[in-house]
Nucleic acid binder design. Structure first.
Lengths: 197, 197
DNA sequence: GTTTTTGTACTGACCGGTCAGTCTAGGAAG
DNA sequence: CTTCCTAGACTGACCGGTCAGTACAAAAAC
């Protein structure tokens, strides 16, 4: 399983992911060429096609990997916490994730609301999984009376997800010199106020 | 000035704008071909290049036109209103605009945070102009004591702009059957709470 | 009022470059 | 020697941009 070969291959795939995510974040999927990805990863073009079926599949696996990680961190963040604390933990987890994987966050923000792309279904599905974790928390909060009863669970959940994304990426792109902790504070403040019963 | 020729040409340019904005909203700038745009507008490819210098210039003029309109509506919305009412009017104006030009809003959301694209400077500039209107309102509110003194004007303004965009487009793309008035209510509620002194 | 000229809007075949994907020779690991 | 993987030249489709030519309205000439 973790013999030299598998480890080496896993390493190559990882380098390709990193290269692809950076380039696609900057330029978008269509404007990014496979040659660029291979060059930045320091491998030959053939290696890309040895490791991935196609450019689209590489991107889909990238999305799966990236959002899977986010979903996992969401789950880890909320386990065992009461609703209102869990909500704050989710905001923190999202921003923490964005800080660590800023290129992926930027990519997500740009490609999330597209329609008519081959990988759109995949992305929609993955988005649903991540938001479901938020929705579970919100639902529990509404049921227990910790959150306002008139809160629309689906809307609130997707809004929370999107707002964190846009505010953080906006900060990263347009005011990159300022610390992300400030965004976190601002967002927590907003969520706290909105969550008031 | 408004003879047959100029009117005809203006009409063609308008049709090209409409076709381009829809296609780019769905697929992105790079994935949209000039042939597609021409076909949807019902003109020959050459006509695109008769009316616009290049694909990039067409897109830049599109951005200028679209954001210019938004900025104008922002200005019209705030004139003569006291800070807190002006802020609510801005939210209403933004959502009203997004409802009317949903494709353009979707396009903006997807291309706004890109880096390393030829037209990035243009977009950055235009974004600045639109946000400046918001910033003036916030600044006046902070100065007059109508808004919290510790509000960071630049951050608050760009956050307000971005949040309206994501929440509205998210709704349009993922829950298109529900009325946008609900989003407006939700957003106004949030802004009202955050703006509390 | 008719004919000729001119300028403008548009057309679509075509060109050159680019890019996703293929193929095969060869290097590394065991 | 065999197996697994990588390199990078190559191919064919596609796409941005060009250009010689058409259509047609309005002015100019008579």
């Amino acid at each position: 399983m973790t013999d030299g070969r598998t480890r080496r291959r896993e390493d190559t795939r990882q380098r390709l992911f990193v290269a692809a995510v950076e380039l696609i974040a900057e330029q978008g999927f269509s404007a990014t060429t496979v040659d660029d990805i291979a060059a930045r990863a320091g491998v030959a073009k053939g290696t890309v096609y040895y490791n991935f079926e196609s450019k689209t599949v590489l991107f889909e696996e990238l999305l799966r990997h990236g959002i899977g990680l986010l979903t996992a961190e969401f789950r880890a963040a909320v386990t065992g916490l009461p609703p209102r604390e869990a909500l704050a933990a989710l905001v923190r987890a999202e921003l923490d994730y964005i800080r660590r994987y800023r290129a992926f966050a930027q990519l997500l923000l740009s490609e999330m609301w597209r329609t008519n792309r081959e990988w759109q279904q995949t992305l929609r599905l993955l988005r649903g999984e991540a938001i479901e974790v938020i929705a579970e928390t919100v639902r529990a909060g509404v049921a227990s009376g910790d959150l306002p009863a008139d809160l629309d669970v689906r809307t609130a959940s997707s809004a929370l997800f999107g707002v964190g994304l846009v505010v953080a990426v906006d900060w990263l792109v347009f005011q990159p010199d300022r610390p992300i902790e400030d965004v976190q504070e601002a967002l927590l403040g907003i969520v706290r106020r909105v969550a008031q019963t």
